[in-house]
């Protein structure tokens, strides 16, 4: 979707402000939101793609004026309500109205193994890859209402496949509960001037990772 999260190429946000290496949080609640988001995700009721989609669905004016963990908090509230695990009334009241339904709960002893295992997104493909490194490809012009990982700035442009990454779960479908529908994933390189015009740095390139259905011919 063309949401506020799709920021590449926008202007007017000012300089990038660096930060020392050890500084990860700016308030205690940010720590808690990180942890609650990961722990709630471990219940397995939604995919990472769905969680990205709820965040990009936050109205642009709110998204752009919210801090990072405030976006995570809003996203988690929306996911919990959408999946019937918590009600809007409970959020408004700030306390549970009743017990939860049976759920897969991440316990403290499971945290290290769960984080170390991660969630692999590669899948065996029954078909062979349509493109190979060196192929010239064009990204589709598309404006889906649902989730996609093809940024607006990279749509409808010609680039070169620089790597074939393997079969990966397709976020565009997985975010909406339509199954994993894995596709071949490619790294595609664009000259900066192809994306941004004659004023762009002629020595720069931008790579994206693009699923096969994002690409033509």
């Amino acid at each position: 979707m063309n949401g506020a999260a799709d920021l590449g190429g926008m202007m007017g946000f000012g300089p990038v402000v660096p930060e020392p290496e050890g500084e990860l949080f700016h308030a205690e609640w940010e720590r808690r939101v990180l942890a609650v988001t990961l722990a709630a995700g471990a219940m397995g009721r939604w995919t990472i793609d769905e969680s990205r989609h709820v965040r990009e669905s936050i109205p642009p004016a709110e998204y752009l004026t919210s801090s990072y963990y405030a976006i995570w908090l809003r996203g988690l509230e929306d996911l919990l309500v959408a999946h019937g695990l918590v009600s809007r009334d409970e959020l408004a009241a700030g306390r549970a109205a009743g017990p939860g339904e049976p759920a897969k709960v991440l316990h403290a002893g499971d945290v290290a193994p769960a984080l170390a295992a991660g969630t692999p997104y590669t899948r065996e493909m029954a078909t062979s890859a349509r493109f190979a490194a060196g192929d010239r490809v064009r990204t589709r012009t598309m404006h889906p209402r649902g989730h996609t990982r093809l940024p607006r700035y990279a749509r409808g442009h010609t680039g070169t496949v620089v790597a074939v990454r393997g079969g990966y779960v397709l976020p565009d479908r997985n975010a909406h509960g339509a199954g994993e529908q894995p596709e071949w994933l490619y790294t595609v390189r664009f000259d900066a001037r192809e994306l941004w015009g004659d004023d762009a740095d002629p020595t720069s390139t931008v790579d994206i990772d693009a699923w096969e259905s994002y690409l033509e011919p």
Binding site: A39, A40, L85, A96
Partner: peptide, 8 residues
């Protein structure tokens, strides 16, 4: 809420 409901 999540702790009370036993989700986390």
């Amino acid at each position: 809420i999540l702790v009370e409901k036993g989700y986390v």
